[in-house]
């Protein structure tokens, strides 16, 4: 079982090795990287490529570790007892399995994506140490141990908003998705738009990397924004011609709203374009 990227997803050699190491040694894989470099997508593509079911646990600031294991729905049990339903005598009717439970008991080996682990409380990763290590946990209400029949492949993503505890890091493999270089980016664009004009892509990539080099941009455009932009360019003939015909440096790139997403950055671009025009004239 080896992951080598899919026809929709370009995985660098580094990333392939990290994923394969995580599969072989059955360790969680922690993925970090700039937003928009395909961290979440990785789990989906790994699941698709290896034909494994994908179970996604989106972490929010209010998420508790326990919710990933199970929740005891005491309120409906109380209500049922009022109504005199028979179900009420068996407590296991009111244990709601969480995503981890689902992944542990999945018939086929599953891919478990713990998305944006850094959004949760700072103690959240610590609360999952044993569960991720042994792939088992204990349900107090029913006094049973849930043990993974097949250890799921755990992929964890982080946007680096909080630092993760050391003990947690020691248990994971780690990979930082670097921003793709030009060659890789060309591959990524090819994968997404097989029929696009080569000239357009080259021009677009040139503008895109120039844009990333501008000092002072609050949020640099990333891969997903480039893909969106090319999609827009392809559907808009006028903008396409503008990009191909004009000297890109002296004007704001067409449809730049897809690349630059806050007003300060947009303002900066306009100022730069203005300065370029003045220099040229």
């Amino acid at each position: 079982m080896k992951f080598t990227g899919t026809k929709n997803y370009v995985a660098t050699e580094e990333l392939q090795l990290a994923v394969n190491a995580a599969i072989t040694l059955q360790r969680p894989l922690l993925i970090k990287g700039e937003p928009g470099t395909g961290k979440t997508l990785l789990a989906e593509e790994v699941a698709a490529a290896l034909d494994m079911p994908l179970i996604t646990w989106h972490v929010k600031s209010t998420t508790k570790a326990q919710q990933g294991l199970y929740e005891y729905d005491a309120v409906s049990r109380l209500r049922d007892s009022q109504l005199g339903t028979d179900k009420v005598h068996d407590i296991s009717n009111y244990i709601v399995p969480g995503k981890l439970w689902e992944a542990f008991t999945s018939e086929k080996q599953a891919v478990l994506l713990i998305d944006e682990v850094d959004k949760a409380d700072i103690e959240f990763p610590n609360d999952l140490l044993l569960e991720l290590d042994r792939m088992e946990f204990y349900v107090y209400e029913t006094q049973e141990t849930i043990k993974a029949s097949q250890r799921p492949l755990v992929i964890i993503t982080s946007n680096n908003e909080k630092e993760l505890p050391d003990a947690f890091l020691r248990r994971c493999f780690f990979h930082y998705i670097r921003f793709p270089d030009r060659e890789t980016m060309q591959q990524i664009v090819d994968v997404h738009f097989p029929n696009v004009q080569q000239e357009l892509v080259e021009k677009a990539l040139a503008v895109f990397y120039d844009l990333r080099d501008i000092a002072g941009l609050k949020k640099k455009p990333s891969t997903s924004e480039l893909v969106d932009w090319i999609k827009l360019l392809m559907s808009d003939e006028l903008a396409r011609d503008q990009l191909l015909s004009k000297d890109a440096s002296s004007s704001v790139p067409p449809l730049s709203g897809a690349l630059v997403k806050n007003e300060q950055d947009a303002g900066l671009l306009e100022r730069l374009a203005f300065m370029m025009r003045r220099q040229n004239s």
Binding site: E13, L17, A21, L25, L169, R170, F173, F174
Partner: peptide, 26 residues
């Protein structure tokens, strides 16, 4: 990882594997 033949006699692979295993922060 080495036992499992993830990186065999190839220094580039070994580099990547070692980094994945030993380094946990970019």
């Amino acid at each position: 990882g080495l036992q499992a033949d993830l990186a065999f006699a190839e220094i580039d692979d070994f580099y990547l594997l070692a980094r994945t295993c030993l380094v946990k922060d970019e």
